[in-house]
């Protein structure tokens, strides 16, 4: 069952074009969304969550569209755009107490579990946390309302290797619970650890969107490289040369 369908997503900026990006994500799968800095990953993810207004294209989640079912979709999706950057001088406890009131399915035991796992003290303010800890706080909030789809922008950036491994383990656990995950990153080793599918964009255009294994096999056969890193370098270098 398709949880997320992105069809012909287009967004024009004066010096950048996100050009008819199309891909879909099945239930219970982890999709890595890769591309260089500035390739259009954040624009795509923000467009999916209605934070950026696309010029063309259709986006559906759970078969629903944002234009008619925005609140329902947002209730079922967890979106984390990097580190928590809100109300940096307010206590985390205070921010979360407001956030939880918006989710009927907010699960305090899940919230405590992730706060303990990530060693976050809710009596601190976001300004007292490191960048990596604020990423974990953002993830914790997304994970505490039983989201069926997680859309995460660079969730492992700024994290130490142990924390990154913890988070990819959490992704695997969530996948077993039937949760679908779409996360952008340029740390290809994280994807090799947990992604089932890969969507790769370069300069706003879709290069590939398919099963990770098939993508690696095909790329190797075409001489583009054995690993994601090698494949990305091959594609991007072709453009430079």
């Amino acid at each position: 069952m398709k949880i997320l369908e992105v069809d012909g997503l287009t967004k024009r900026y004066p010096s950048f074009l996100l050009d008819h990006v199309t891909f879909s994500l099945e239930q219970g799968r982890i999709m890595g969304f890769i591309g260089r800095n500035g390739a259009g990953k954040t624009t795509t993810l923000k467009s999916i969550f209605n934070l950026v207004h696309p010029d063309a294209g259709a986006i559906r989640m759970f078969g629903l569209g944002m234009e008619t079912d925005e609140a329902e979709i947002k209730r079922r999706v967890g979106f984390a755009g990097g580190a928590v950057d809100f109300y940096k001088r307010k206590k985390i406890r205070e921010i979360v107490s407001v956030t939880r009131s918006f989710y009927e399915n907010w699960d305090d035991s899940e919230y405590r579990r992730y706060m303990d796992l990530f060693s976050i003290d809710e009596n601190k303010t976001p300004s007292e946390l490191s960048e990596g800890m604020r990423v974990k706080l953002s993830l914790t909030q997304s994970l505490s309302h039983h989201a069926e789809l997680l859309i995460l922008d660079e969730p492992t950036s700024g994290l130490d290797p142990v924390s990154r491994a913890e988070i990819t383990d959490v992704f695997q656990y969530l996948k077993r619970q039937g949760v679908s995950i779409l996360f952008s990153t340029h740390i290809t080793s994280d994807l090799e650890r947990c992604a089932d599918d890969i969507t790769y964009i370069a300069k706003g255009r879709l290069i590939a969107s398919e099963e990770m294994e098939g993508f690696l096999r095909r790329s190797a056969a075409e001489g583009h490289g054995e690993t994601l890193e090698e494949i990305m370098v091959w594609h991007e270098k072709e453009r430079i040369l």
Binding site: F49, N50, L51, E70, A71, E72, K74, R75, F79, D85, F86, Y87, K88, R89, K90, T99, F102, Y103
Partner: peptide, 17 residues
């Protein structure tokens, strides 16, 4: 200063709300 608009837009509410 608190990036409040983005926080609110991420909540399960319509953008118009």
């Amino acid at each position: 200063e608190a990036n409040d608009i983005l926080y609110t837009a991420l909540l399960p509410v319509r953008k118009s709300d």
